[in-house]
């Protein structure tokens, strides 16, 4: 009996060892990045990473000497607007596909599906020309307008809306709700979780854009944080690793915090929306 117990304890111990080892490996770049962000650039350059001369100097430098706050604000505004727009337009088109009967509905839905197969990366040339001719280059609008809606979001919400019990629609019909009322008072609140998931997804999508903003924005007024970081890393602060790491940390820490809070929603939503 004792033998078995010992074996079990040993097995458990081994599991923890593996768990911790993996966590260390995975998070190494992360921790090293954060750690060096507190070190003076001189020590980093000398390879003296085990210095304990920690300070917030790099952070202060990043915040005061670089436009990082401006980049951050640009990213926040653009991601938030994109998210709200996608929630509105995707839920509207998903509603049409689930609750409205109209001519060519199947055809239109097929078009949406086809859209999901087409990579945006392959369409940058005409889209660049469109944005240019609309006079939107180097403007927030350049980063928002092409992403106001998404076929994926429509598809995901449609899957979710379809699960709305038919009886709720019938009950609403008996009370005489029109489509606007049914959409806003019943379908949206009923599918709250999917909307949160899509919101997170579209926000992150906009936040992580790289190629398109690189093409369409070229001043600090509209440059978003991803491209801003590259700007910092490749330009004036070429070898100031401490400050670059601090800039990275400034961006990553809030997202990580949001992620921790939203993890529960995100996980269930992802599995529900995507894989079912």
């Amino acid at each position: 009996m004792q033998n078995i117990d010992e074996k079990a304890v040993l097995k458990r111990l081994m599991t923890y060892v593996v768990l911790i080892a993996l966590a260390l490996v995975i998070l190494a770049p992360f921790f090293i990045g954060i750690w060096t962000s507190f070190l003076p650039t001189m020590s980093i350059a000398k390879g003296d990473l085990f210095n304990t001369n920690l300070s917030l100097d790099n952070y202060i430098a990043a915040l005061t000497k670089t436009p990082i706050l401006r980049y951050l604000a640009n990213s926040l505004v653009i991601s938030t607007i994109t998210m709200i727009a996608q929630l509105i337009f995707c839920s509207m088109s998903a509603y049409a596909f689930v609750f409205l009967k109209f001519k060519y509905r199947k055809l239109f839905f097929a078009l949406f599906l086809v859209t999901m197969m087409l990579p945006f990366e392959a369409q940058i040339i005409p889209n660049f020309q469109t944005i240019k001719s609309l006079g939107l280059l180097d403007n927030y609008a350049a980063l928002i307008v092409p992403f106001l809606t998404s076929a994926f979001g429509t598809f995901m919400l449609r899957q979710s809306f379809k699960q709305t019990p038919k009886e709720l629609k019938e009950a609403a019909d008996i009370e005489g709700l029109n489509h606007f009322q049914f959409y806003s008072r019943i379908v949206l609140p009923y599918n709250k979780i999917s909307l949160i998931t899509l919101g997170a997804y579209s926000f992150l999508g906009a936040w992580n854009q790289y190629l398109w903003p690189m093409l369409t924005t070229f001043s600090n007024n509209s440059r978003i944080i991803q491209n801003g970081l590259k700007q910092l890393q490749s330009e004036e602060t070429f070898n100031d690793w401490g400050m670059i790491q601090a800039s990275a940390a400034i961006i990553v820490i809030p997202t990580i915090i949001v992620l921790f809070i939203g993890q529960h929603y995100f996980k269930s939503g992802m599995n529900e929306g995507a894989v079912k």
Binding site: I26, L27, P29, G33, G228, Q233, S247, V252
Partner: peptide
């Protein structure tokens, strides 16, 4: 901890790894 890299954006990941 394992899900943490989800919060890391392209540029941040690049910077962390460029240092590595």
């Amino acid at each position: 901890l394992y899900s943490m890299t989800m919060g890391v954006s392209v540029a941040v990941a690049a910077i962390f790894w460029l240092f590595m």
